[in-house]
Nucleic acid binder design. Structure first.
Lengths: 333, 333
DNA sequence: CTGAAAGCGCTTACAG
DNA sequence: CTGAAAGCGCTTACAG
């Protein structure tokens, strides 16, 4: 079944194509009466304007691309939802894509939205610089990085979180519970400058509070199995509390500890980044360093909208992390 | 910065526009040499074909719309991921949209993809019949419903799960643990025929196994607060085990029980639909009725692809639910 | 207030 | 193997 075209509408309404177009866009002079006639004809034909044709002429597509690494990660799901919602409110249609923590798939998404001639993009960038990224930037479209930044691409505004406040408070809480050695599991740092920064900040802060010899850091990569051995090693070294920089690691660790009879909050204290719902389901509930993902999303969307109006000028923004103490940080036996 | 057009490429390569087009699509006769020359010109200009223009001429957009109620629900996140992945493998670009469990927003998404002239859609439909849905169906595009169906729209293939096997096994497990009265919390049934069916099947099965007088059913809607009072009432009635038809309810309930000192698996047994990661994080772990969401997603995508080739002909498919027993079902004190 | 014409960036027969 | 021309469905000046 073929779509009705503007021509069909014009014919049925007994007017010219231009008149139909004017009725469609309620702009230009048009009489009330003809407008009504045209709208009637549209209804009768079930006319749906071809937005591709519209966009091609008017060079405004009303769509923006949004890329997240993995929609199954609740943090990114929340982020995507918030952004889509905010942009929808501003009249934009958001296309969500997934990079699977993979630079190639990111690039393929970028090429796809570029060839779609979208009005702009919001990205959680993957890894470092890339060809497609350069192309996107060269386009000078409104572009915002969220959650992560890319080294060397300093002209793009980035909205992310400042790890210092949350980490500071978490370390204080741990210390207040009588713990003298603290560990940090940093996740796949190679993929993400954000994770690198967190680790760096942790090292600085923890060394100041606990002394360099009492600070242990390990990264896990994407390998599930390594998690157990890392924790085992830390406990053997006398570490009483572990902070997870990457929440999927914490999820895995909590599950493993349960299965291995290690009691959270009693045998070891746990803090994780990201205020995920599931951390309120465990017993004990897990203390978290919240990135305030809703705020990041809202500010990210707003920054994007500012760029649309301001033609490119917009600044970066850091949202403070906050610490939410719960029972997973306890006094060791 | 304006995009380079096919004209620009033709000029630089010293050939005609048609020749560039042929090089682009590697179809029609074209000499190796000129093809190389053209490709060189494309590279030099950073040419990215306008897929809107391409689609308008060739009436194949290579994109499909995917609508889920709420991407923050891990079940739908998983579903969306699986589908997007499968379609990507088949050369399709998937646009994910969110209906927020809201028929209006669903309709607005449908209108948007329709005006985008996408090749087809996969929907987790919202509520009942609607104008936009009719329009979409009238288009005779490949269309698949996933997870839910719409009453009266029986021509559309639907891929969902069969609640019987999982519920049967769950009830057996509960019975084997010496429980004599069983409850069911059915979630926002009004929004979803799937939830209605689950409730219905539960009633039948439970009445057979426990006797009609020992079966208690309540629905919660989207209201958080009602959850507590529902559980309280059921416990007072002597209910030893509760099955949740809608996993977000179970998540809330587990969290509330924890806060109110009700011990899962000891004071009350719990089973929830959907094999979510978080149900393996709680202690005790929650027994679940899995819908095998990955399979649903894979089959949904495959059904869609079949429709693309077969021009409309494709059947519905039910995936069996399976029961995964864990410690949340225990012997009551 | 309304219509005829040009053109957005492509693809597709049709000639050559 | 290659090019000139028509046309996909719209919008936008330009006349009237």
């Amino acid at each position: 079944m073929a779509y009705a075209t503007i021509r069909d509408v014009a014919r049925l309404a007994g007017v010219s194509v231009s008149t139909v177009s004017r009725a469609l866009n309620t702009k230009g002079r048009i009489s009330e009466h003809t407008k009504l006639v045209v709208e009637q004809a549209m209804k009768e034909l079930g006319y749906i304007p071809d937005s591709r044709a519209q966009a091609m002429r008017s060079s405004k597509t009303g769509t923006v691309g949004l890329l997240v690494p993995d929609i199954r990660n609740p943090y990114f799901a929340d982020l995507a939802y918030t952004i889509q919602d905010a942009l929808f409110g501003a009249g934009y249609c958001t296309f969500i894509g997934t990079s699977s923590e993979n630079a190639d798939q990111q690039d393929s998404f970028i090429m796809s939205i570029l060839s779609q001639r979208i009005d702009g993009a919001i990205l959680v960038p993957q890894g470092g610089d890339s060809h497609a990224l350069r192309l996107l930037i060269g386009r000078k479209l409104p572009l915002v990085f969220v959650d992560r930044q890319v080294e060397g691409l300093d002209t793009i505004p980035v909205v992310d979180s400042d790890p210092i406040p949350g980490l500071t408070e978490a370390l204080e809480d741990i210390r207040a519970h009588g713990c003298s050695k603290v560990g940090y599991v940093s996740g796949p740092v190679l993929e993400s400058p954000t994770l690198q920064e967190r680790e760096y900040v942790f090292r600085e802060l923890a060394a100041m509070a606990f002394g360099e010899d009492h600070v242990f850091v390990e990264s896990t990569g994407f390998d599930q199995s390594s998690c157990v051995s890392v924790l085992r090693r830390m406990r053997r070294a006398g570490v009483g509390a572990v902070i997870f920089g990457y929440s999927p690691d914490a999820v895995r660790a909590v599950s493993l500890m349960h299965d291995n009879g290690i009691r959270v909050g009693l045998d070891i204290s746990i803090v994780s980044f990201d205020d995920l719902e599931m951390f309120r389901l465990t017993s004990p509930h897990i203390s978290v360093i919240s990135q305030q993902v809703r705020r990041i999303g809202a500010i990210g969307a707003q920054t994007f909208l500012d760029m649309v109006v301001g033609h490119g000028a917009a600044g970066s923004h850091r949202v403070e992390t906050t610490y939410i103490p719960r029972e997973s940080v306890g006094r060791m036996r």
